Amino acid sequence: MSNPKRLKRRFLRYLKLERGYSPNTIEAYTHDIDYLLKFLQDEHLAVEDVRLPHLEQFAARIYEFGVSSRSQARIISGVRSFFRYLVLDGEIEDDPSELLESPSRGVHLPEVLSVEEVDRMEAAIDLSKWEGQRNRAIIETLFSCGLRVSELVTLRFADIFKKKHCLRIVGKGGKERLVPISNNALKEIKKWMYDRNVMNIKPGEEEYVFLNRRGAHLTRTMILIMIKNTARDAGIEKTVSPHTLRHSFATALLKGGASLRAIQEMLGHEDISTTQIYTHVDMTTLREEIMCHHPRNMKKKLSDE
């Protein structure tokens, strides 16, 4: 009988060393497998004895615990990856999760900001504070380049190619991509440099573009709090996060006529199905425009009045 904890350690090592997954992704897989191993322990089941009915019972169990459909789908996906690895590694012969169905997640339309709302956020920043220009540069860079917040906090000067107007980004799985950067974003970063150059920077942190007041590079949580507070100060009632600016970047590109393939490349999506969510966002906006401005709807509105 195999030791489940040992299998888990080997699986996570495989994700890190052979698949090149980031620490955040590996942590998510760790939680997924922990759900499974707890279930197997409760049911007195060995990993090699698991069959499809057991996994269907497992899926029902996490549903009963009130886990959201989105989280259920992620857990099931992690469990599938675990069993595929066990087959690959020769621990089991057949994959019991092959026919395991995920709960329907539906289409989740992300919140997006208009250009005017992004401008309002930047205008709401108090530039008299030492971090004011830094925060303005961060918001402009996120909106202009569509970066993940993890990519922004690790951005280094060596990754900025000013003459070519692009950034070199190392995304998920260690994959590199080149992302265009606007003149506005470069200008805001340049202004931030005046403040940054007079800071006391911690050894080893010199290459990071964005720093906190202690001279160390920022964390994702710091940026999340800053963006939420800035949106509040700008009077924006939407739920705004760093990822909202990434969604807004992609939606603006789609409305401007960019192809899904081009947006996929700039966002660093491995699968274009992830990028296709923005077609739903654009169609929602288009539907609202039609309902407000199409002559048929306008006539109906007048008759209702």
Rank of each mutant, 00 (worst) to 15 (best):
E237C: 09
K38F: 10
Y85K: 10
L7Y: 01
E43V: 01
G215A: 01
L286V: 13
L7S: 02
L211P: 09
H165C: 12
N212G: 10
H294Y: 15
K172W: 01
E43M: 00
P4H: 11
I26D: 07
T221Y: 09
E288R: 15
S69Q: 11
L52K: 10
A258Y: 00
Q276A: 02
A28M: 06
I75M: 14
R61G: 02
R10K: 13
P180D: 12
V87F: 02
N297K: 03
T274N: 12
V87H: 05
V67G: 02
T279R: 07
K301L: 03
I138C: 09
I169Y: 00
G90N: 13
L218H: 03
V107I: 13
I189F: 10
K300A: 15
P23Q: 00
L267A: 00
R80W: 02
F143H: 00
L113T: 06
N3W: 06
E93C: 05
E131T: 13
H54R: 02
M199T: 01
R214C: 07
H269R: 02
M291V: 08
S241C: 05
E205S: 13
A258F: 00
I272T: 12
L142N: 04
P96M: 04
I138K: 05
N184D: 14
S81W: 05
E265V: 11
A123H: 08
F249D: 07
V67Q: 06
P103R: 04
G78I: 04
E237V: 10
M193R: 10
T25D: 08
R213M: 09
E270H: 04
E101G: 06
V179N: 10
D34I: 11
Y14G: 05
V209S: 10
V50K: 05
E265N: 10
Y14A: 02
F157E: 11
L113F: 02
P103C: 10
T285S: 15
Y63G: 13
E91N: 12
L15F: 00
I223V: 15
L142P: 03
M283E: 14
D282C: 13
T25E: 07
Q72C: 04
N135K: 03
S2G: 06
D119G: 14
